[in-house]
Structures are given as C-alpha cells and as structure tokens.
Design a protein around this nucleic acid. Structure first.
Lengths: 139, 139
DNA sequence: CGTTTTTTGCAACTATGTTGCAATGTGGTA
DNA sequence: TACCACATTGCAACATAGTTGCAAAAAACG
C-alpha cells in the first residue's frame, strides 16, 4: 500500500515528501472524491493549507488526480485510474454526487454517451455530474 | 423587453425592485450564462454584493434561473427556458463552456442521453458540462 | 396615505484559493 | 557521509466567493 504511494510519486518524478505521501495515501484509501477540506480535516495540523493546495495542483498537473466540477462551489478531486493515467487527457468523466451523504463517486466504467452538438461547437472534454441517492444511502 | 421582465417577476410573485429588474434584464439580454462577477461588473456600484447574491438565490428558488456546475470554482447562472420554467425540476442540462472566451452556453435543445448507472444509484439530476471551442471562436 | 411585509445595505464573518519569499528538506554527487 | 543545487514548505498577506444578523428603506396592499 505504502509502496504504491512511493511508486506513483517516483513514476511521476516527484520528490518524496511527507505531504505528498500522506495526501496520496488518503486518496488511495478513500473510494470517493476528496475536497481540500476533507484532506485538511484528515491530516489535522500536520500541513499548511497552502501546501495542500499546491500538492493537489501538482497531482492534477501530473495526471495523478483529476478535478470534478460541482454546483456547490467546492472543487473535488479523485484518483485517476491506471487505465487513464498514461498521460492522456481524461476527456470523459462521469461522477455521481449523493444528495444525502455528499460522497462523490468516480464512475469510470460507465460509458459517456456521445452527443450531437450544434454546428461550430468543438468539444475537448466532457464532464457528466449525476446527483441523486447513492448505493449505500438507498439501502 | 422590459415588459417581459416585470411579467416574469409578477408571475413568480416577487416584488418589483430595481435590483431584480436590472439583473433579470441582464440575463435576458445575454445569450450565455452569467457569474456573480459578470453581474457586479455590469451594474457597477448600483447594488450591494449581498443584494446580488440574494437576488440570484431567489431566482434559483423560483426556477427563473439555474446553476451550472464548473471546475473553476465560480458558479454560473443561466435563464431557464419557457419550456422548463413551469415549476419542474430541471433534471437535465447540457452546458458548453468555451476554453477560449469562457462564454457558457445552455444547450437546451441537445438531448441528454440516458445512461446505465451501477445498481443502487438513483439519479435525480444530470448535468453535462462540455468544454471546448464554441461556434464563435472556431470560425 | 398609513400599515404590514419584503427587500436592501452595511458590517462582520467564514470558506476558498493564490502569491512572494525566506527557511527547510530532498536528491544527486563527490 | 557531506555537500551543493534545486525543489518544496510554511508563513504572511492578499484576493475572491459566499453567508448571516440586523436596522433602515422600499414595495405591496388596504
């Protein structure tokens, strides 16, 4: 587990630092997406707010995590799966945000349907955000 | 034009005030979506920041406008078209955000494809955010 | 026109995110 | 292992986004 964290950092030519190890570990242990606040809460006073922001930024740049758009003005991040971490652009994402527990899931295996845009619109990336009741809350 | 503004406000049982008239007018004159900042810039010092926030909130509650999720941490709002302003829940939206000029379009006429979610996930609303190059910028 | 109710503006506050810079830590090498 | 160059961190300060309580002002309504 911990080995995989260091492995990922090395693969992306990043220095091995406490904050990066801890934050990446957090992502690997959680199945949902994390917002900055979630990370701050989980690490306590260990790291400066700025460090967390910069670490997240770095991870996004390296393609380790990706952002999830939301309507509540809090950017969330989720791990990119192996299948899409080979440097490509994460063109399509489906995410599910639970109205009840606020957990955000990255539904990698659901296929993003293609759609017919009006003439002149050239898409480069598609985000689909489905909200509703998740599988744990609907039991 | 101005008549339609007052009409809409009356239909929704809202008091006719300067801020509501001005802001609703702005939405009707613009074809794209507006963020809080766009409105503040367009109205100058006329209204307090708080008033703009509360006006937008009121419009969302009445179903006059709807929010658009985004990954850049700025909530945008767009007018709801007549077809969907009859009090229903705006379950499906497709929006297009131009990487170049940042204009956000509400593509009402594009059909949101249905998709197969994993067992236990019950969707209530679907937002699709497509980014790329818009028809004006791609000329 | 006066009363009731709604809306506004102000002040203060929380959350979110960024930048510059000095201090510290990491990686590579002798 | 010690040293050096470079990357990363923490701090302070700032910028943007959004909320809440409350008194004053404006609408609505009779």
């Amino acid at each position: 587990m911990h080995a995989q964290v260091i492995d990922t950092l090395k693969k992306n030519q990043l220095s091995i630092t406490d904050s990066r190890k801890t934050i990446l570990q957090l992502f690997m242990e959680s199945d949902g997406a994390l917002a900055h606040m979630d990370i701050e809460n989980n690490t306590g006073e260990e790291f400066d707010r700025v460090t967390i922001y910069r670490t997240l930024q770095t991870f996004v740049e390296k393609g380790i995590i990706h952002t999830i758009p939301s309507a509540d003005n809090a950017i969330r991040y989720a791990l990119c799966k192996d299948a899409c971490s080979e440097g490509h652009h994460h063109d399509n994402h489906i995410h599910f945000m639970c109205d009840n527990c606020s957990t955000t899931y990255c539904l990698d295996h659901v296929v993003v349907p293609s759609l017919q845009l009006p003439v002149g619109f050239r898409p480069s990336r598609t985000d689909m955000v489905v909200s509703g009741c998740c599988n744990r809350c609907s039991k």
